[in-house]
Design a protein around this nucleic acid. Structure first.
Lengths: 189, 189
DNA sequence: ACCTGAACACCGTTCAAGT
DNA sequence: ACCTGAACACCGTTCAAGT
């Protein structure tokens, strides 16, 4: 039994894993087609160009991040636990066969992305930074989220960098160690 | 007049700029050949495979980093100036048409690199971390460089992340702001 | 609505052939 | 020593044709 959108969904699942492992440039419609069990021309029926698929993948990734962060904020956990859970989301990609944040790897390939894909990658970054700024502001009575944005950007950059460097070491423990160091000097407070 | 190694050198110059802008996967021997004024088959004479060129580029990049850092240590500047100059080296890539650290972008493509290229990318990371650990140890009488390596790794990751995120924003000022935030919380001390 | 084969201009790589 | 054209199996993309 197959229902409407199943093939499109299978393409996105395979595409997401491929991009998180090898990046946008290395993504192959022919390999994707083989995995899904169709011909490469059929992939183009669902996603006219590689850029369209990339935009769809990044868009969904940003949506999922938004939902995850909203839930995390509503979880009632303390600040330290919340920040640990935030870092844990990036840890998950590394634990999944040394993959990266989909938008992190696409940021490295930024110049090769068509504008619609860039827009979604930018949105993922914005979702992260704005959530971090609000989370930081929640425990600082006098300060606004707006004023804390520079600090939020720094945290986001530091976490993405930790993932990148840990990936190069093929060692999730390196990510944990870096995040622990960030915590110990108060970057995540 | 052309001397021995001129063509090989021209390939490396063009290749370096291309990788820093678009990454290893997007590098094209045919485009490189056009820029240099030879045929793509001739590029293979100098670098048998794309992986060989990537390894040569990363190897030279690591060598240059090593030389730059040795000079910086010998410059007699204070710690804050030295760390500003360190960040300034990463800033330079961004200022050069929004490019990235050659090894940073290749770390994102780690899974697609042949082993010899990975070795050089790893060496670049090691050169940075060891220099940072020694630099941190120089102003901490009781502590060894070895013991400060976790902190050195965290600094390296944070700087690479700052470059990645600033690149996504196409804004060198974002890099400066992130580094300033790192400084203000004492990450670079 | 969804899939396909065939064609196009690209790509890295190989190799026999040139100078 | 250095370069080349031609070939190979790949790639994204298009399109007329199928069901």
């Amino acid at each position: 039994m197959s229902s409407a959108g199943d093939t499109r969904e299978a393409i996105m699942q395979a595409g997401r894993l491929a991009v998180q492992a090898h990046g946008y440039n290395a993504l192959s419609f022919r390999e994707l087609a083989k995995e899904v069990g169709i011909k490469s021309a059929s992939v183009h029926y669902h996603f006219p160009t590689k850029g369209d698929l990339a935009a769809a993948l990044a868009g969904r990734y940003a949506d999922e991040a938004e939902a995850f962060l909203a839930e995390l904020s509503a979880s009632g956990q303390g600040h330290d636990e919340v920040m640990r859970a935030y870092a844990g989301a990036f840890r998950l990609a590394l634990a999944n066969e040394n993959r990266m944040c989909l938008c992190g790897i696409m940021t490295a390939e930024y110049d090769d992305l068509p504008p619609p894909a860039r827009t979604e990658v930018d949105r993922f970054a914005r979702v992260n930074v704005e959530w971090l700024a609000r989370t930081l502001a929640a425990r600082r009575p006098g300060e606004t989220a707006r004023a804390l944005e520079p600090r939020a950007v720094a945290i986001f950059a530091a976490i993405e960098g930790a993932q990148l460097i840990a990936r190069g070491r093929k060692d999730v423990a390196a990510f944990d160690q870096i995040v622990t160091t960030y915590q110990s000097i108060g970057l995540l407070d």
